[in-house]
């Protein structure tokens, strides 16, 4: 059923041209086909719990109005395609002289996938831990400083410290908020915002000190860019596009005050 297309998709994944890569790809196809087949079966099973007949605009108890109809069709086709992918992947894998279809090269997987884990963890810390509860400018500056410096610093221990510190603080904020969290723009919220600013400052120092001479200049650039970007983006969205920021704390309050003063002077 399947043939290949030449064009590269957007975004471009690493090339898979050699027999080793092809084997790995076909093995991955079998695995993902299996996972998708399970998802499709779950989709079908869940759809059977929806009303299998429906009423709409005068039509009574008709199967074709059922909310289960479309999910059943989609789930069914997805299941067929997944099975076809498994069969195709298995056949090709054997043709390419692949041996154990179920062996997982953990070491290699970790080596090639650690950046995926790092970027995902950074984004999760920013989105789940900081954005919903910390001043947007402070949270963004902290996230940017850490994200940029992790890929600039040359000393491995500094990299680990940056990542660990960020995840500990964002994870901590998430866990503390499960119990209690100060009200917006309260004294407690201001303290948290200042703590995040302090953490961003420490991260900046660690990053700059943890960079060898050629990378140090870039680390300083990254710190300045982080700070300026956080302020400019917050101001652009809040004052120009009139989009309220997710959490407005100490820094946004400071920006509001500054803007009020400038507007008063302008008048």
């Amino acid at each position: 059923m399947a043939t290949t297309n030449a064009p590269t998709a957007a975004p471009e994944p690493p090339a898979a041209d050699g027999p080793e890569d092809k084997r790995a790809l076909r093995k991955a196809d079998v695995w993902t086909g299996g996972i998708l087949a399970i998802v499709a079966v779950f989709m079908i099973a869940k759809a059977t719990t929806f009303p299998l007949e429906g009423n709409y605009a005068g039509v009574k108890n008709a199967w074709y109005v059922s909310p289960a109809l479309f999910p059943l069709i989609v789930g069914g086709i997805l299941l067929i395609l997944s099975i076809a992918l498994i069969l195709k992947g298995r056949a090709d894998y054997r043709r390419l002289a692949g041996t154990d279809l179920f062996a997982v090269p953990w070491g290699e997987t970790w080596r090639s996938g650690q950046d995926v884990v790092i970027v995902s963890a950074l984004l999760a810390g920013y989105i789940v831990g900081l954005i919903p509860r910390v001043d947007f400018v402070a949270a963004t500056a902290f996230f940017l400083v850490v994200f940029m410096l992790i890929y600039i610093v040359t000393v491995p221990s500094a990299r680990r410290l940056l990542l660990g510190g960020f995840l500990a603080l964002s994870g901590g904020a998430f866990l503390v908020a499960l119990v209690a969290w100060p009200a917006p723009r309260s004294g407690g919220q201001n303290t948290v915002d200042l703590l995040i600013w302090a953490a961003a400052g420490i991260a900046a120092i660690v990053g700059i000190m943890g960079s060898a001479a050629p990378a140090r200049r870039r680390a300083v650039q990254a710190v300045i860019t982080s700070l300026v970007t956080a302020i400019i983006l917050a101001a652009a969205f809040k004052y120009f596009l009139l989009v309220p920021l997710p959490t407005e704390g100490w820094t946004v309050g400071l920006m509001d005050g500054l803007r009020a003063v400038l507007l008063a002077k302008g008048r």
Binding site: T3, P7, A9, A16, D29, P71, I77, L81, S82, K88
Partner: peptide, 19 residues
């Protein structure tokens, strides 16, 4: 048109979107 590997993967991606 878009699948960089097996065409069936393009269709699967479309049906994941539908799901």
């Amino acid at each position: 048109l878009q699948s960089p590997d097996l065409v069936i993967k393009g269709w699967i991606a479309g049906f994941i979107g539908l799901a």
